[in-house]
Simulated assay, not measured.
Amino acid sequence: MRYTTLGTETGLRVSEFALGTSNFGTKWATGADQAASKQIFDSFAEAGGTFVDTADTYQQGDSEHYLADFLAVDRDHFVVASKFTFGTAGQTGISKTGNSRKTIVRSLEATLTRLGTDYLDLYWAHSPDGVTPLAEITDTLDDLVRGGKILHGGLSNFAAWQVAQAVASARAGGRNPVIATQFEYSLAARDGERDLIPMAESLSIGGLLYSPLGGGLLTGKYRTSAEGRLTTLNSIIQREDTAQKTAVVDAVLAISAETSMPAAVVAIAWLRARNARSRTALVTIIGPRTLDQLGSYLAALDVELSAEQYDRLDAASAPVLGIPHDSATASRNRVLGGTADSFVRPDEHLVAP
């Protein structure tokens, strides 16, 4: 397991994989009981994992309850993140959900109680609520940092312009800035390359990437069965509904056959290599439900794809960036003329070709 700081504007040290714990609990349609969750947690820790990501809504609070027992042995060894916005069992409704100051403060109190700790390393707004002003969210997170209840704040599932505004305004006002953003990213969903990843690199904040297997799509299992998230949750999933996604799954399965590695390992190995090419810290959130699933994620730590294999997957999954990115590329070529392919900016040596 490699380690990094969560962006270059903070010294918060995290493992390159974060353990997502939405499967810790049995109150949803799928999940792991406490004993199975403990095995997953312990195995992750034994592999060197230190970063744990949960939310008050996961398994109606069970995820945080389970983690209280798991973390009690050495709480300060782990970087613990949780989220607010959607509430949990008995805490839903107009006054107990969303991103208002009231909701944030009360949600944090409940989360700290369930986790059996007096602070969080990172506290996320889980999603925009469409109502609360961005300044209210960041000001409240700043107050919680100053009060010692959390060490850092983050924004999950927010647009790049919202995150950029939050970071810039906080820095300009001398407040504790948002240090990271969280969004879906995988070979099946590289939309983050349009704005989110460039924004994170530009502002030197961290990025946490969830659903690295596209909800199971990249394992190829949905070609032979609907078992999994497709039947249990019917959410947070990429479907094989475009020609490009079919080409991506074909490429993953082809390399899997060539290397005798599971398709999941191939997909995570590509993502790990892609993260290493970023100019800021990109951390992959893995969310295993079983020890076998955890083993597939961890196996990717020892896999190096060949340049040809990486490029094949990269080409098959390349996103269409659209406007204004396409026109910006055309403008660069027009301005630089025949030197466009050989012209390198001073900072571009940091990124592998």
Rank of each mutant, 00 (worst) to 15 (best):
K96W: 09
R277N: 10
V163P: 02
R13D: 04
T290C: 07
S156T: 05
E184H: 12
E193S: 01
S15L: 03
T140R: 04
E308V: 13
S95W: 10
R13N: 08
R332N: 07
I40K: 05
L305M: 09
E46S: 08
G220W: 01
T140L: 06
A170Y: 07
L19H: 00
T329R: 13
L253W: 02
K83P: 02
T290K: 07
Q60G: 06
F41Y: 02
A166I: 05
T50Y: 01
T50I: 07
L294W: 01
T339Q: 09
K221E: 03
V145M: 08
A180L: 02
A352N: 12
S43T: 01
G206Y: 03
Q34D: 15
S306H: 07
V283I: 08
T339D: 14
G130Q: 03
I179A: 03
A254L: 07
T219M: 05
Q60S: 14
V351I: 04
G228P: 04
R75L: 00
E304N: 15
V14A: 00
V145W: 07
L209C: 12
G49P: 01
A135W: 03
E227L: 14
V266D: 09
L213I: 15
V335D: 07
L336S: 11
D314C: 05
L230M: 11
V145K: 10
A45K: 00
I205C: 08
Q293L: 08
A257Y: 04
R223L: 02
R272D: 05
D195W: 02
G154D: 06
L305V: 12
A29G: 15
V335G: 06
D62Q: 15
P353W: 09
K38N: 10
H349D: 15
A318D: 07
A72W: 05
S225G: 13
S296I: 07
N333H: 10
L115T: 00
E308P: 11
G154A: 15
I150D: 05
G20F: 06
A269K: 09
V163Y: 01
L151T: 14
L313V: 05
L196C: 04
